[in-house]
């Protein structure tokens, strides 16, 4: 018996390879910036830095849980042990070659982390998790290569902008202008938290990447980048699943060696 190793995703194109890269938990994603944990907490706006975590239920004590074999097998994450509230962070990813798109975020999170609830909408992606675990994950996601200061937004509400044209500085539109362009430093600076409550001090998330660089890094197929139709493996995969779901929905017992 040889242990199976995941292959993640078909395709030979750059976006396909990049998709495999973000999904593979063995690949350590590049850290491009270091936003301090206190600043991450400020941007999320669920508690003040240094403030105690609020809890929704008493701490989980070993041996005092309901008698369930699965609870004995599945180790709770830190925040669950402490009974933390469940809080969220939500990212908006621009269609203009953002490093990652919302749907691949779900694949990435669920391949790399445990104990989270995630959901994808057209232009945004929410993660809900126990507060202290969420903060760690949020910092990693803001610091690493899947975040671009100009093309990724941290937005709890009024997330609109992912499919809008970029502004003159190359920033994704935000009706609540949570972040602004610092002309002198050529950096993106957060001035409001994720629900647009003004921050008491500005938080820099660094310099945006160049379009040429982003086109190499993105997981997004685009007609003016890499067209999905040009990656035969990816298109063939989509057609195959569609066909097999249909045949399986009709007479699964007759689907053999397809």
């Amino acid at each position: 018996m040889t242990a199976y190793k995941r292959q993640f995703y078909p395709g030979n194109s750059t976006p396909a390879k990049n998709r495999r890269r973000v999904m593979d938990p063995k690949v350590k994603l590049k850290k491009l910036r270091d936003v301090s944990m206190d600043d991450v907490v400020r941007i999320m706006g669920h508690r003040n830095p240094g403030e105690d975590y609020k809890s929704i239920h008493p701490p989980i004590e070993e041996g005092k849980e309901p008698d369930c074999p699965i609870r004995k097998l599945v180790e709770p994450i830190e925040g669950a042990k402490k009974g933390d509230r469940i809080r969220y962070i939500q990212f908006t990813d621009s269609v203009y070659f953002a490093p990652i798109s919302p749907y691949q975020r779900a694949w990435m999170y669920l391949s790399r982390y445990r104990g989270l609830d995630t959901g994808t909408l057209s232009g945004r992606q929410i993660i809900e998790m126990r507060e202290r675990d969420l903060e760690k994950l949020a910092k990693e996601m803001i610091d690493n290569e899947t975040f671009d200061p100009a093309l990724t937004g941290i937005r709890g509400a009024t997330v609109h902008g992912h499919a809008c044209r970029l502004d003159e500085n190359g920033l994704m539109f935000d009706a609540w202008q949570r972040y602004v362009w610092d002309k002198d430093k050529k950096e993106v600076v957060y001035v409001k938290d994720q629900v647009a409550i003004p921050l008491d001090r500005k938080i820099s998330v660094g310099k945006p990447a160049s379009m040429a660089d982003l086109k190499k890094r993105t997981t997004i197929f685009r007609a003016d980048g890499v067209d999905m139709r040009d990656d035969k493996e990816v298109t063939a995969y989509g057609l195959r699943i569609h066909k097999l779901r249909t045949l399986g929905g009709y007479q699964p017992f007759n689907v053999k060696d397809v």
Binding site: I77, L110, G115, T118, M129, I241
Partner: peptide, 27 residues
Amino acid sequence: NTGAARAAQGVPGTVLYYNDLLEHETG
């Protein structure tokens, strides 16, 4: 996944992406 969270709310997302990952993994 929801067991590690000790929180039931992740079940729809887990069901969705588990199946999606499985399909992408195998065809």
